[in-house]
Design a protein around this nucleic acid. Structure first.
Lengths: 154, 154
DNA sequence: CTCCTTCGGTTGACACGTCATCCAACCCGT
DNA sequence: ACGGGTTGGATGACGTGTCAACCGAAGGAG
């Protein structure tokens, strides 16, 4: 019944530059991480979770929740990382359906080498260019949109 | 020589919520577009470019530039869209290497049906939740980061 | 204990992106 | 006209992501 409300000029410019910025920024971070350590951003996130945990071990289910990944995505990704020797799977003592994911020595070395330049790149490309106020606003915008999504999806 | 500078708490919270927000937001927009019109966001962008052009026709090279897509990405994507009958390819008169991309009647109907709800979703999920100042800041942040990327990549 | 549902995880099919490679047509200097 | 570099585009291989289907173990309700 009601006409859809369109975006005004300021809004559509903001939207377009937001989308392009995210695409180019993650592409560049991805490119550097791959060149420097042979990791994808997804690999990095998995290894970060594992190396922060005691014994470098996390239950697969838990990993999926922290990363907010679908279980099939996680399963496929772990296959590939296992093939490359970055992680391995072990049986779960408490639940025989479960799988424990363990970071290997190679995985640990790889992320320890990768992390400092990666963080440095985020700093250079993002935070060094923004004021304190802008960073605060960035977080506030993100949280507002996330709140809205939670309401909608509920 | 110099220690890498890490992110402080405010920065890493901003960074994390930015990443999660973008992932969930685009996932939701994607889900809706697919459910409502059977299109991916990439399909939508291609069709939008084509329907804005005279005769619904754009040279492939030009399409790649507007979308900032690699040529192989474009080629693969056009394959899939052609298979679904959304576009077709024609020979290019001025350059016999070239390809003209033409939106089909089905493609035109599909995006005309898809566009209003999609724009409405962006409005609901993003702009209705932000103040004018926040939208301005979002654009300014995006442009600053893009400027930085242009310098780096140059 | 038995049935039924839910849960954790895997698998296969397919869409999507990137990289490297290839090919023909174009352009340009000689 | 020729010869070499560049451009527009297609292709194949492979990593990545989603969806749907599947399977066995877990966990109640009766």
């Amino acid at each position: 019944m009601t006409e859809p409300q369109w975006l005004d000029d300021g809004e559509s410019e903001a939207w377009l530059s937001f989308l392009v910025m995210h695409a180019k920024l993650t592409a560049e971070l991805h490119r550097r991480l791959r060149a420097q350590a042979g990791l994808s951003l997804a690999d990095f996130d998995v290894l970060a979770q594992l190396t922060e945990a005691p014994d470098g071990t996390v239950r697969a289910r838990q990993l999926g929740r922290s990363l907010q990944w679908e279980k099939s995505r996680l399963s496929h990704h772990l296959d590939r990382m296992q093939r490359r020797g970055l992680i391995r799977r072990e049986d779960c003592a408490e639940d025989s359906r479960g799988a424990m994911v363990v970071v290997t020595e190679l995985g640990r070395e790889t992320i320890e080498r990768a992390a400092p330049p990666h963080v440095q790149a985020v700093r250079e490309l993002v935070f060094d260019r923004l004021t304190r106020r802008e960073v605060d606003t960035m977080r506030r915008i993100s949280e507002k949109i996330l709140d809205g999504l939670d309401e909608e999806v509920r």
